[in-house]
Design a binder for these strands. Structure first.
Lengths: 254, 254
DNA sequence: AAGTGGTCTAGACCACTAA
DNA sequence: TAGTGGTCTAGACCACTTT
């Protein structure tokens, strides 16, 4: 286990040390393949294998046509889900800008933007189960892309049983906000949420929509909202790239 | 964008389709490099590049000396952090097995185990900030490795200001459990937690300690506990591999 | 035009695992 | 021992970006 390193592992280890020590700073270009070939006297594919290891570890990102760079940290958006759709909180801070995500982004001096698409679908099995829909139950889905300073930051799909929202303003592809979440605007009150967070690599599609660099994992955050009888009203699945988000909860320890 | 695929991308796309359609089932071996070379008539490195793409996406795991396999999903441990150290909840279910993680695992018919190491350290800067320690403040750290059926499932480091716990049983490397968390056993009551969840690729060290397959991201869950005056008492950093955990919160929407 | 990385080939040797 | 993947070489051509 502590034995000799292969050639490509040597290169990876050396570069990793330089990056972690700060000798190679974030945003800085790493040595080109030609430079590494000369420095070590190894063949090109060997050098490439070494660099690839660091790319897979997420320490290095790859540009196009020009160079590879030490990964830079994004300023993360801190997203507090324990107050995110709270009616109380919404009254307290009196924000009218939009939802709390938009408020938090704006408060940091950045420009939030959202695109919304609405459609009626046969939901995937997991959503059907969470919403307790039957085999043939339809759902209205509001699909959002959230941007910060015109960079895509998150995907958010909100599913509601079609029977609950047919004919309401929620069917329109506009931004709708209300204390207690969009459902409150049509009189449906969610009294409890169950949130589940899974961590995984993005699908091809997600990586493309979010312009993710390689080796960027995502959090899949699923919030299911229930009414006072415990009936599920809505299910929101949010894809949060790990390099630009922190998820926060405030918990009472009682 | 919709243009021609390179040879290695063709192989990746074909295998991805077979995996997603179920033609290649989880746990099943994918075709060997020799088979793919013959099937496509491509050179070995080209075939390897195609397969590597799927490994990086997390769809394929790599064994040693023998074959590559379609990734199998672990049965995930669902970890409810909204009740995890609740005093009320602890009284309600009357569990004595250990903490709630251990209870949840045991309830699923699996065998939980923990190893604990205790030491006094100069904490890293992030921990110092969260605990509001000065430049030279020391911390007691309880480092746990949590196992399920003798497989490592999570790393959990709990930092407490040295001044608060010096001379208490918390300095001993034993399992300590109490309603409200270990601190309650020495009379320190946490009334509020702030949890922050970040998503990233594991460090080399974490990957080794947890025996992580390649392309397995982790959640870094940080819980800071405060007393009723808002003073931080403890900071627990838990590393949760994405392939074997789901994080859950129950939230009141008031 | 020069420099970068991406793709591809046709070899070779080695370490590990299963039969 | 046969089959697997891991490492490595010395070439080649191409697409993209910067100067």
């Amino acid at each position: 286990m502590r034995g000799k390193l292969t050639k490509n592992q040597q290169i990876a280890a050396d570069l990793r040390t330089e990056i972690e020590s700060g000798a190679l700073a974030p945003g800085e270009a790493i040595p080109s393949e030609a430079q590494l070939m000369e420095r070590y006297g190894f063949s090109r594919e060997t050098v490439r294998a070494g660099v690839r290891t660091l790319v897979e570890e997420g320490l290095v990102t790859t540009g196009w046509g020009q160079g590879k760079y030490v990964r830079e940290a994004y300023p993360p958006v801190i997203w507090d889900w324990s107050t995110m759709e709270s009616r109380r909180r919404h009254e307290a801070d009196g924000s009218k800008v939009g939802d709390q995500w938009a408020s938090a982004v704006a408060a940091d001096g950045h420009k939030p933007r959202q695109e919304v698409r609405v459609s009626i679908v046969e939901p995937p099995k997991r959503i059907r189960d969470l919403l307790q829909l039957g085999e043939d139950g339809l759902a209205v889905v509001r699909q959002r892309v959230r941007y910060v300073d015109n960079l895509p930051y998150a995907l958010s799909d909100s599913y509601m049983p079609e029977s609950l929202v047919a004919g309401t303003p929620l069917m329109e592809p506009r931004d709708v906000h209300a204390p207690g979440g969009v459902l409150a605007s049509v009189g449906l009150i969610q009294v409890k949420y169950r949130d589940e967070i899974a961590v995984r690599m993005p699908t091809r599609e997600e990586a493309e929509k979010l312009s993710l660099p390689v080796a960027t994992p995502v959090a899949e955050h699923t919030r299911t909202g229930y009414d006072e009888d415990g009936k599920p009203l809505r299910c929101m699945v949010t894809i949060l790239p790990g390099d630009r988000h922190v998820i926060r909860y405030e918990v009472d320890a009682d």
